[in-house]
């Protein structure tokens, strides 16, 4: 099963393309996901992942409420324990509102929160307290539209989290370049393990959502 899924679909789990190939009909297998165990091996493990892909399809259809929505993956890297549920949901809601205000209502933002354990992020050679956000925008967007959008996102982040302006780093790159950057990150993994690594991360994002209410996992794989 895993070999039949192209890499594009695994690294963009929320895209329509991924959902299309996952295909099939099945009820929401929440119990299957909960039963996923890291020590599962062989057939049982593959079966579990397969069921989870069906869940993604179900979840995506349910959450987009239409076929014209464009999913934007927003990668937020934050220090472990720095933001709680309320602030994270406020950030998700506010940034979505800003995005749709600037670029229209047809965009659905999917936030993926990566947490950095203490001691795993440095700025200028010292421990960093900064968060970084990758929030891609349409290709070729002129600076006259891109920069006001970025300023508003950063200002809102500061307002909600109470951080200083130095503690938020925002990258609003073109969609295409953002995907290339993400692909570069995936390519560091051993080719034969890329799919399983991405699926493992995906599962952890989803488990994080069940546990905390938003997609999250640690950078420690």
């Amino acid at each position: 099963m895993l070999d039949k899924i192209p890499m594009d679909q695994i690294i963009s789990p929320m895209s329509d393309y991924y959902i299309f190939v996952a295909g099939g009909q099945t009820p929401c297998p929440i119990t299957t996901i909960i039963s996923y165990a890291p020590d599962s091996q062989g057939v049982k493990k593959q079966f579990t992942v397969y069921q989870s892909i069906y869940f993604l399809r179900w979840f995506h259809k349910k959450s987009t409420k239409g076929e014209d929505m464009k999913s934007i993956r927003v990668m937020c890297t934050i220090q472990e324990g720095s933001l709680g549920y309320t602030k994270i949901k406020q950030l998700e809601s506010s940034i979505k509102d800003i995005y749709q205000k600037y670029f229209g209502p047809d965009y659905k933002l999917v936030f993926m929160w990566l947490t950095l354990p203490h001691g795993q992020a440095y700025l200028a050679g010292k421990l960093s307290a900064a968060s970084s956000v990758q929030l891609p925008v349409q290709d070729g967007l002129p600076a006259s539209r891109r920069h006001p959008f970025m300023s508003e996102v950063c200002a809102k982040w500061q307002e909600i989290t109470g951080c200083t302006q130095d503690q938020i780093i925002l990258a609003s790159s073109d969609f295409t370049e953002s995907e290339k950057f993400q692909r570069g990150l995936v390519n560091r993994f051993k080719p034969s393990k890329r799919k399983s690594t991405m699926l493992k991360m995906l599962m952890r994002f989803m488990m994080g959502r069940f546990k905390k209410g938003y997609y999250n996992t640690s950078v420690t794989l």
């Binding site: 001691g119 795993q120 992020a121 960093s128 560091r188 950078v219 420690t220 794989l221």
Partner: peptide
């Protein structure tokens, strides 16, 4: 900025 990811294959 330098970030460390661990336990990767």
């Amino acid at each position: 900025n330098v970030m460390f990811w661990e336990n990767a294959t």
